[in-house]
Structure formats: structure tokens, C-alpha cells
Design a protein around this nucleic acid. Structure first.
Lengths: 345, 345
DNA sequence: CATATTTCTGCACACGTTAACAGTCCATTG
DNA sequence: CAATGGACTGTTAACGTGTGCAGAAATATG
């Protein structure tokens, strides 16, 4: 009934448990034939080592913590799924991928180098800094995804949000838009700031002044995109194009447009960010920016595994390119088309 | 540098490590003042118990495995997210929620009652049976979500798919539709079969014969919904309403309709299943069936925790109601409206 | 043949915790 | 005053592994 241990195997093989341990770990000290014999017995008994005992003596937990700022809200499901999947893919099967929210912990005392061999933090808020400090002072290997902290001591991996937003905004400008609005991301999230920066940079290069009325708040929720769009449509002078800081908000925005009787992209152009699972299947299909979340996550996980093996920490910031995906939700502005047509005639 | 242990505390408090252990576990054997003194020292040293050592002696891993059939494909992100979130919510913070795919394991030898205190299986395929057998023969507490196995020994928790599909199909019939098609779920998935059953039952009650041309295959992907719809639209006699076995496929189907110049719900009615995060924000908003995934998962997790505590297994099948959410993607059929209008005049 | 060397195996302990059992001390009882 | 019992605390072993060191056996070396 109780699980078989190396001692059971030792008895059957008439050797000491030490020899069994060595044989199963393929130590060069053990005779080939003895190894063979022991392994066969182990197989026969369906032996599987007790991880707790191993952990205790080897000082490794075989746990990799995948932490999110919170699991209760503010995370989109596609984002979550891709992150988990990326990490899962890169982690050897003998490790446990443990999902946690930072807000599970009243304090970080219980997080020790015994409980996690390494931690992947999918960081979504500047509030995570306390957590980062706690983890680094305990010398637990850490990779930080999605946000950069130029601590000089951390491995950061993130999408180039600024460049991504820049290409999206530039695309709108090149289509001929001059009245371009932005629905911003959740306040306090670094990604929100970076995307706005990229947007602003493109505006500046095209010599389009940043109209404060055209910069409306959002929080990455579908609903907030809907609300923000209604505010924009209530303006005396409406924008002809809107850059939404993520796809969820673009969904909401599109809904608001349709309710107002506006056709996308004929009357108003929309661009999103993230390339959600569903974005290609909207009508019109959403032009957006693809952020390689799964790649970020898997890259982070495999670097973490490496760092654990080598017992060294690497400090570096890696930006993975975000790529504009052109579909149907953005087109040349109404007016501009008229003007061009008139010019042709 | 090395973490503090109860022995360190013992030295400082001039007691034996046993006393420390008892004090920290709030044993009634220890004097109040002694407890106090010891706890203060423990706090001061930021003591946190070594979980591996605890696990070894208590024979509990503090790991709860959350298994999916696979993590690489075939799982929708909202489904995944809600499942994880539900389990996470119900599990005490000192447990680790470990995410695994069944297909991570070439064989199940490494899954022992030492590695998991309990297992939650979000089962999506009949192929999971081998896994279920392996887990139960090892006497690891198990709850089975989303599928039922009337093994007599298992706790099953799932949505009442049949009833849900039945209400959706009945709704379409009551709207006046007679030419109703179904886009089916992934072959081999029990949910696919149950939904089709519910659909068929409603058809039967309304004395609508099941037209084989109107039963088209899908696999729960957006793309498969799109493809299936195109097949339906290519039929000589088109359906006036389509029940899609999940929302993802409904998305694809809606896209196909629009491309064909058909308006939803004016020309064709669509109903989905799952109530995805985005379904309410489609245009038209999708009428669908809400399946309480997060509730299923959290209910399963808390029952599992209970079972682990009491060291007993409960065998039961719990069906949680799936509820029709009426929005805008289904309406009375074209023809029927005309007929009714003529009758009124 | 004696000694040195290589090859293999076992003893004993360690990891950090819990728990059965055995004391110790003090107060209460007869 | 001895005996009994209650309230604590300590001794010791155990959980299942891995590892330094010592030792045995086999082989090579002189």
C-alpha cells in the first residue's frame, strides 16, 4: 500500500540503499550490471522517487512560480492563457508550474528560496515593486515579463510596446488621418504609458498636435473602451481615427460606433493592440498590433531554467518586436477620400 | 545566508527544537508565555518553515494538480482562464496550484500521492480515461470537471449541457424556426454529444425532423465555425437558424454570414454556447448559453480540499445549470414574419 | 609475492520537521 | 510527608533521499 522506496529496492537487490540511489542517478561509481539489475527491479516496482525527500536534501523545490499581479481582475483571458502556455512549454516536465497572484499574499514571508526554485513575474503594475524587492533580496532567480525595471540586476523581457504603438499610429497618419484619438490603457500600467509614448511620437513626426480632448482614459476593459468611444463621439469635433490601447477596448469602441450608426472603417477608423484570438473574426476584422506574449513567456521561462542550472543571474532587457497586423478596420478618412477624388477629376 | 530553522530559534529561546515546533503549531502542550516568546523570535528572524521537510514527515505535498487534457490546442482561452481562476479562488493560499497537461506525461508513473495531495481534472476528451484510472488506483483524491464518468467512485461536476442546448434550441423553435441547423462540437468530446442531444430533444418535442444536411461538423475553433457556416450557406435549402455548439464557432459563423451578405438576425438567426467574454460586445450581441465554468471549477476545488481534509472520497454527480442569455443574434425567421404580417392585414 | 591502484560498495550522517514517549517540576490530595 | 496527577519540556527516532569517507575486492605494478 505505501509507496516503494529505495530501501525496498535495496532489500530485493541485496545491496545498500546508497547503491540504489547511486544506480538510479546513474553515478559512475556503480558497476554497469548492478545498475541494470537495480533499474529493472525499480521498474518492476513502479518506483518513483519521493520528491519531498529529494527536495529536502538537494535544496530544490522543483517549483517554478508564475506570478501575476492579480488573478481576480484586470487580466484578459487570452493574455493569461498565452502566458501560461508559453511558460508551460518551456519548462521541463519534472518541474511544477505554480500559478499565483501577488495579491494572494498579505506579506511575502512565505515566499522563500525553498518554496520556489525560480519565479516568473508577469508584471502588470508598478505596485509589483515590493514583490520584486522581496524576491530579489532572497536571491530567488527572477525574470520579469512585460515591464522593465532598470534595476541593473534583473532580466526583463517585454514587447516593444512603444514601437508597436508607433507603427499603428504612423499607419493611421499615413492613411491621411489628422484627427486621431487615443483610448488609453489602465492608469499605472507601464504598457499604457509606453503605448501612449509611441502614439505621441508618431503624432509628432507627422506634425499633428496632441489634442487633449482626443486622449481619453480607459482601463483595458471592453466596457471602458465602449465608454471612452461614446465620450469621443460626443465631442463637437469628432476624430476620424482612434488608436485603442488594446483589442478589448477596440471591441467596445466598435460596438459604440455601430450603435451610433457609424460604419467602420468608412466613417471612422479603429486600430487595436494585442491581436486577440477573436480580432480576426470581428466584422470588420480588426487592424491591430501583435504582441508576442507566448514567445515572451516561453523565452523568459527557458532563460530562468538556464539561470537556475548555472546558478548565476543574468541582467538584461530584451525587447521582442510587436508587429502591425493590417486588416479591415482602418482606411483613409472620409474627407480625404473626397478630396483625392476631387483632385482626380 | 542560509534560511533560519526551528533549531536556530530553539537556541535563542533556550528550548528544544521540539518545543519550537509545538509552539509554532499552537500545540496546547506549550505554556502561553513560552509560545509568545518563541513566536516573537520567529517573527524577528523572518522564520518560514521548510515545506519540503514538512511534506516529508506529514506526507503531504501541498500541491493541487489542475490537469487539462492538453494545453497546446483545443482549449479556448476564456475557458482556461475561468477554470484556473475558479480553482485558484477556492484553494487555500498555502497550497500550490500546479497546472499540467495530461499529454505532458509519457506514462503516469511520476504521478504519485506524494506529488499531489489531490487532482482536479478539467476533462475534455474520453481519452482521459487512462489518466483517471491511473489516479484512482493510486488513491489520489480526484474531482472530475466537465465530463461525467459513472464509475460510481468519482465526484463529477459539470454544466448541464444537454439542458442548456435544449433551452437554446427550444428558444429558436419557439421563435418560429423550422429549418434549424447545428454546428457540432469537437468529435469525441462528451460536451459535443450532450449538446447535440439537447438540441435533438428540442427538435423532437417541436416535431421538427433532424435533417442530416443541417448537422455539420466543427471542432470548437473559430475557424471551424466559419467553415461549417459556409457549408450550410452552400446548401440548396438554407437553414433559417443555426445553433452553434460554442461561441467561438458562432463568431466564425457570423463572419461567414456577413461575408455572404446575410444580416444577423434579420436573415439568419445564430445562437452560441458558453457566453464568452466578448459575446456581449459582438454586433449583433450574441444570444448564447452561459455555462458556469468558474463556479464548476471553484466548487470542485473546494470539495477536493474538503475530501483531502476528511480523508474520504465522495462519489456524486453534480449538474450546475446552464442558462440561456437572450441578446440580439436570434429573432423570428424572415418568412414567418411576413406570414404573420400578412395575417394581421 | 607484496604493494599500489583502481573499482566498486556500505556505513553513517545530514537535510528540517513532527510525534511517541519519557521525564521533570510543582501543586494537590489523603 | 508520601503519593498522585497535571502541566510542561526534552530525548529520540522517523520520514526518504543524497554524499563524504572508509573499506573491500579485484586488478595492475614492481
Amino acid at each position: 500500500m505505501t509507496a516503494t522506496t529505495i530501501k525496498d529496492i535495496a532489500k530485493l537487490a541485496r545491496v545498500s540503499h546508497t547503491t540504489v540511489s547511486r544506480a538510479l542517478n546513474d553515478s559512475p561509481l556503480i558497476n554497469r550490471e548492478t545498475k541494470h539489475r537495480i533499474r529493472e527491479i525499480a521498474d518492476r516496482l513502479n518506483y518513483s522517487p519521493n520528491l519531498s525527500a529529494k527536495s529536502l536534501v538537494l535544496d530544490r523545490s522543483y517549483n517554478i512560480g508564475l506570478f501575476f499581479s492579480t488573478l481576480t481582475s484586470g487580466t484578459s483571458s487570452t493574455f493569461f492563457f498565452e502566458t501560461v502556455r508559453g511558460a508551460h512549454r518551456a519548462i521541463p516536465p519534472d518541474y511544477n508550474l505554480v500559478i499565483k497572484g501577488i495579491d494572494d499574499y498579505p506579506d511575502f514571508g512565505k515566499i522563500t528560496n525553498k518554496s520556489f526554485d525560480g519565479i516568473i513575474l508577469m508584471s502588470q503594475s508598478a505596485d509589483d515593486q515590493r514583490f520584486i524587492d522581496a524576491v530579489t533580496t532572497k536571491h530567488i532567480p527572477l525574470v520579469l515579463l512585460n515591464r522593465s525595471v532598470d534595476d541593473g540586476m534583473l532580466l526583463n523581457i517585454l514587447a516593444d510596446d512603444e514601437q508597436g504603438a508607433y507603427s499603428a499610429a504612423q499607419y493611421l497618419a499615413r492613411l491621411g488621418h489628422r484627427k486621431i484619438a487615443i483610448i488609453e490603457g489602465r492608469p499605472g500600467f507601464q504598457s499604457a504609458a509606453r503605448r501612449k509614448n509611441g502614439f505621441a511620437k508618431a503624432m509628432q513626426e507627422h506634425e499633428i498636435p496632441l489634442n487633449p480632448d482626443f486622449c481619453v482614459a480607459g482601463n483595458y476593459d471592453v466596457q471602458s473602451g465602449y465608454d471612452a468611444m461614446r465620450r469621443l463621439l460626443g465631442l463637437a469635433e469628432r476624430p476620424t481615427a482612434v488608436f485603442c490601447s488594446n483589442d478589448d477596448m477596440a471591441f467596445g469602441a466598435m460596438k459604440a460606433c455601430m450603435e451610433a450608426g457609424l460604419k467602420v472603417p468608412e466613417h471612422i477608423s479603429l486600430v487595436g493592440f494585442d491581436d486577440n484570438h477573436f480580432s480576426a473574426y470581428l466584422t470588420p476584422a480588426l487592424t491591430t498590433v501583435r504582441r508576442p506574449i507566448e514567445l515572451i513567456s516561453s523565452e523568459g521561462a527557458s532563460r530562468l531554467i538556464q539561470a537556475i542550472g548555472r546558478k548565476e543571474t543574468i541582467a538584461e532587457t530584451i525587447l521582442l518586436g510587436a508587429e502591425l497586423v493590417i486588416r479591415q478596420s482602418a482606411a483613409a478618412p472620409y474627407k480625404s477620400v473626397d478630396i483625392m477624388e476631387e483632385a482626380h477629376e
